[in-house]
């Protein structure tokens, strides 16, 4: 009963909203607003066929490569900057500036330097996704538990073992929070870079539909983006919960005492 109630509460408002949407557009109210049934069938038509392979997968591939590179570079640099003081002093103002540049504005420049290809999109994604991971890693490394740090010092824990068993696990809650932010940023940058200059991909198709004033098709692309955004964020939350099980357990134990 409880779970049933829970589910009812979860789906109630979305269902009401969809019914409202359906009722308001039933008479074909506006040129710009699609009808739910039409949008659904368009969605299947447009995306669940060949385009899944030719446009959706390449887009997701770019996003994945960009995110992996950002994660590796972000954690690597972050650990270095977080643990060595003079490196931190050296790079902090520079990073502060680079981070403040809206990464989308780099797209025209990268277009000149690299050209219209996958590398350009991956670079754009990395330029945006690096910052949340890098900054959170620095913060995580710096805010390591004092007792843990001292214990590791006393046992002469150094180099690789220290990194793998002390530093990275200690910083992992913040690092994962950074990656979660980066996923959202990466999706945005992927779409923008494809909208600005591409020959395939989700962003390119949405823009293409808009130019051809194919309104329902355009909306179906936006819906796909929404679904991707929700799925990526929900999927990563699951992974995060899995990796950080010990951390949540620790927090709960601390709250109980």
């Amino acid at each position: 009963m409880r779970t049933l109630r829970q589910i009812a509460i979860w789906v109630a408002l979305p269902i009401i909203l969809i019914i409202l949407w359906w009722a308001l557009t039933a008479r074909g109210a506006s040129f710009f607003v699609p009808q739910p049934a039409g949008l659904f069938s368009k969605f299947i038509d447009v995306w669940m066929g060949e385009r899944l392979l030719t446009d959706v997968l390449p887009s997701l591939g770019r996003l994945a490569v960009g995110l992996v590179i950002s994660t590796i570079v972000g954690i690597g640099l972050g650990v270095l900057i977080g643990s060595v003081r003079w490196v931190r002093w050296l790079l902090e103002p520079l990073l502060e500036f680079l981070r403040a540049i809206p990464s989308t504005i780099m797209i025209p420049v990268l277009l000149l330097l690299i050209g219209i290809n996958d590398t350009m999109k991956v670079v754009v994604i990395v330029l945006g996704c690096l910052w949340p991971i890098l900054l959170n890693t620095i913060e995580g490394v710096r805010s390591l538990d004092e007792v843990l740090k001292n214990t590791a010092d006393i046992y002469r824990f150094k180099g690789w073992p220290r990194l793998v068993f002390v530093t990275l696990p200690g910083a992992s809650p913040l690092i994962l929070a950074g990656i979660r932010q980066s996923i959202a940023v990466g999706l945005i940058l992927l779409v923008v870079s494809e909208m600005f200059a591409a020959t395939d991909g989700i962003g390119y198709l949405i823009m293409n539909f808009q130019n051809r004033v194919a309104i329902p098709e355009m909306w179906s692309g936006i819906v796909l983006l929404g679904i991707l955004g929700v799925m990526l964020s929900a999927g990563f939350q699951l992974i995060e919960k899995r990796i950080l099980r010990w951390y949540y357990g620790l927090k709960e134990a601390a709250n109980d005492s």
């Binding site: 999706l187 945005i188 823009m207 004033v213 929404g226």
Partner: peptide, 16 residues
Amino acid sequence: FLRPIPAVGLIPVAAL
């Protein structure tokens, strides 16, 4: 559900 939808997806709509 609405929060993770990337706002940039709506750029074409805004343009229209």
